[in-house]
Computed example of a mutant assay.
Amino acid sequence: MNSEELVAFIRDIYSTNEFIPLHAPTFNGNESRYVQETIDSTFVSSVGKFVDDFEKKIEALTGTKKAVATVNGTAALHTALYMAGVRAGDIVITQALTFVATCNALYHMGAEPAFVDVSPESLGLCPKALDSFLSEHAEVNNGECFLKSSQKRIRAVVPMHTFGHPVELDEIIDVCRRWSLSLVEDAAESLGSYYKGKHTGCFGDFGALSFNGNKIITTGGGGIVLCSTAESGSRAKYITTTAKVPHAYEFFHDEAGFNYRMPNINAALGCAQMESLESFLKAKRQLAEYYLEFFTGSECQFVSEPTYARSNYWLNAVICPDESSREQLLKETNEMGVMTRPIWKLMHRLPMYQNALRDSLEQSELIESRLVNLPSSPVVNR
């Protein structure tokens, strides 16, 4: 791969000779107006119309029964796991090829991750690897799944839709059903992504979205719990708002809840961003097409959406032929002022998760050694 040609190509797309970040937020709508409205109203914290409006916008887009806004994506995932029944001492199966927040949510609940390999098509949890892992390590007794070696309960499976590319959900759902496991989707990166026409995050018992500054839309910091029933949504809302029993003036809390409420000022930003989401998605698909055309016939393989899905192409990526070419590409592009990044270190390489149970992770390690993320900010009205 000729790094100079790639840099010139990217600079032409973004029409700049300045530094090009990996993914910057785009503000070209009502963001300032809505945020100023919250300031003028003084309702900048957890009470205000924009929180309700933002939740309704997400419900309309995704088709979920109830969306519950939280302060960040990790809080959304923590809440989703808690609502799915995960408790201290439980095992939760996920992928090692993920952002650390997936595992940190488990760590702070006192639960333990177990790592299963990913599919080369989706870069997300592989259903065949999941089934093989369970066949080797698990058993079902009285409707619950347990680790054979220790009899610890295996409570849930958490696939992550890597870079917005949906995993093979039908197959994963089938495995979860046969092994009596809850499905919680880490959909942090996949707002606007669809699996066979249905929005990601809406297939499991719960899903979690993120609206960090580098996501396809942002609330500054924020997340959403996607709930499969209205009843579970009401419960999630209650838990995330400190489990306060409604009263005109008294403060009484009947259980230990979470203070995970999204502030109104953040939701105002999100409402404005949602008005631009369609244009963002269109621009990101166009950008992915540019990259696909550029890399066609080269030694690097562009990561395209799976055949069964429509991806938001949150972060574009290429798979280099080997680790040395990956290192060269990373070094040269960054030296020329175009930000590229390797994928995250696999979770079992981090000190706090190095002893977690895992399978061979063959595909995960191959992808880790060869993948490069490319600038992916949407170019609106190019």
Rank of each mutant, 00 (worst) to 15 (best):
Q354E: 12
P25E: 08
R177M: 04
N30M: 12
P113Y: 00
R235L: 12
R285M: 07
D117I: 03
V68L: 00
S276C: 13
S45A: 14
A309F: 11
F258H: 05
M274V: 11
V140D: 07
S324V: 14
V44N: 07
S232I: 08
S304F: 07
L281S: 01
S376Y: 06
A105I: 07
N2W: 08
L292N: 13
K237F: 10
T241K: 12
S325G: 00
L106A: 04
M352Y: 12
G197A: 09
Q273R: 06
H253K: 14
H108T: 10
Y353K: 02
A288Q: 00
R285T: 11
L81E: 06
L269T: 08
G110R: 03
S3A: 15
K198I: 15
D205M: 13
R358I: 04
V7Y: 05
E4R: 12
E275V: 10
Q363I: 15
V379D: 15
A24Y: 13
S360M: 14
E289I: 09
L97W: 03
C103Q: 09
N214I: 07
S279V: 12
S376G: 07
S41K: 01
L366I: 14
T219S: 15
R370Y: 06
S180A: 10
L169R: 04
F295E: 01
H253I: 10
I93V: 14
I319Q: 04
R285W: 07
E37S: 09
V379S: 11
A111S: 03
V44E: 07
D359W: 06
R33F: 09
V225P: 01
D117A: 04
I172P: 00
S46W: 13
K284G: 05
Q36C: 11
F19L: 10
A268D: 08
G201W: 05
G207F: 05
L329D: 00
D174S: 15
Y313T: 02
C176E: 03
N141H: 12
A208R: 01
L130K: 00
A236F: 03
A283S: 15
S298A: 06
A256Q: 12
N312W: 07
S325F: 02
R310C: 13
E4K: 15
S360Q: 15
G337D: 06
S304N: 12
V100L: 06
G204E: 07
D174G: 08
A243Q: 05
E335N: 12
F280P: 01
T242E: 01
P375N: 10
D53R: 15
P127T: 05
E112P: 00
V116A: 04
Q273D: 09
F302D: 04
L226W: 05
F302P: 04
R261D: 03
Y249Q: 14
R153L: 00
A88D: 12
R349H: 13
Y353G: 04
A96F: 02
V303D: 01
E323F: 08
L361P: 00
E168A: 09
E18M: 05
N104Q: 12
T241L: 09
K66Y: 06
